[in-house]
Design a protein around this nucleic acid. Structure first.
Length: 319
RNA sequence: GCCGCUUUAGCUCAGUUGGUAGAGCAAAGGACUGAAAAUCCUUGUGUCCCUGGUUCAAUUCCUGGAGGCGGCA
């Protein structure tokens, strides 16, 4: 009995679909998509880890992988949600887990690639046991802040969760809201839920971080906007508008969309100005991504220009 | 040509009743507990346009000059 249990465990371990898994991350516009298109589609499939590219109809502004590339190499978690629906890390992990199993069952190796560092982190380590967001409670907290004030909410947090209160800043509305929300839905403070600090599923991943020089990044981001315009970004925005899209749609929070919808709200201003803003916001975003990625462990940092080196690394890991 | 306003951080501008100065944006760095393309934090020495004068002390007051903006010719 005991023996067969051990054997069983061993069997599971050996067949662990999560054992071999590749992470290819880097900031927006660094050249992830181009690299993926160079890989052997019989050996690899891609799982998208980008919080905006999951949305249908947000193609050009999100710099989504083209149909050509998804035809060439299989992609998961692209176009899975309507832009008015809320995606989340939890959904990402759930869907990505399913995709991993599916890919491995096909005899291929999964590559998780995209720019959302938050998703990687929790895919690797898992989430805490804290309750998921409850829209009703979230709304309640939001109203509380509106009626009283943020500092009132912050002081409330001090009463119910001193650890979290000390950890987050008094102006961080986002996190103050979430911390209160957890308290109200579970009755327990957010800080009572520990964050895991080991990899899930006994993963032994290959983690590749792509980078590029600042000047080059800036040039690429600027060029990318021009290409988006050529591809018909304005038509895409117009279609979205026609379908009722607005700033409160989760998908419209994406850079390349929110700037247009903001401009529509505050009164028209020139496309060139919107373009400059989009490029500027993308630069700031890229910087935040680097900062987050730099905090990750076991990363093989490689310049995105060294394509051969990267492909070799992936192939030798996959043997 | 005359009159008025103006010149201070990379940009837009505060300010100092004379004791060499500070906001926003930009830039750089950082954080990240179920919304993360989100949210937030830290970092400000700069010939205070130039020149001469008054003064213990001038970016500040006065003289002259240069640039910008506006008005009148």
């Amino acid at each position: 009995m005991v023996k067969s249990n051990i054997q069983n465990q061993k069997k599971i371990k050996n067949n662990n679909p999560f054992k071999k898994i590749i992470f290819l991350f880097g900031p927006t516009s660094v050249g992830k998509t181009n690299l993926l298109s160079k890989l052997d589609s019989n050996k690899y499939s891609v799982i998208n880890a980008d919080s905006i590219q999951v949305y249908k109809g947000l193609d050009i502004g999100s710099a989504k992988v083209s149909k050509e590339i998804t035809d060439k190499i299989e992609h998961y978690l692209i176009d899975i949600l309507d832009p008015r629906e809320q995606f989340s890390v939890a959904k990402f992990i759930e869907e990505a887990d399913k995709a991993v199993v599916e890919i491995v069952n096909k005899g291929k190796i999964p590559i998780i690639s995209g720019g959302t560092a938050f998703y990687y982190k929790h895919f690797l380590y898992g989430l805490s046991q804290a309750p998921p967001s409850d829209p009703i409670v979230r709304k309640r907290v939001e109203n509380l802040i509106k009626e009283k004030s943020l500092s009132y909410a912050y002081n409330l947090l001090k009463e119910v969760d001193l650890t979290t209160y000390n950890r987050i800043n008094e102006n961080d509305k986002y996190r103050i809201s979430r911390a209160l929300e957890v308290k109200y839905t579970s009755g327990k403070p957010l800080s009572s839920f520990d964050l895991p600090n080991t990899y899930r599923h006994d993963m032994d991943p290959l983690v590749i971080g792509l980078y590029r020089d600042k000047d080059e990044m800036d040039k690429r981001l600027k060029l990318r906007f021009d290409i988006m315009m050529q591809q018909g970004l304005l038509d895409e925005i117009r279609d979205l508008k026609k379908n009722g899209a607005s700033l409160d749609w989760p998908g419209i929070q994406g850079i390349g969309y929110k700037e247009f919808f903001l401009a529509m709200r505050t009164g028209e201003f020139p496309i060139s100005k919107i373009g400059n803003l989009i490029v500027h916001n993308s630069k700031k975003y890229a910087k935040r991504q680097y900062t987050f990625f730099k905090s990750f462990e076991n990363v093989n940092w490689i310049c995105a220009k060294e394509e051969l080196k990267i492909v070799d690394l992936i192939d030798s890991y996959s043997k």
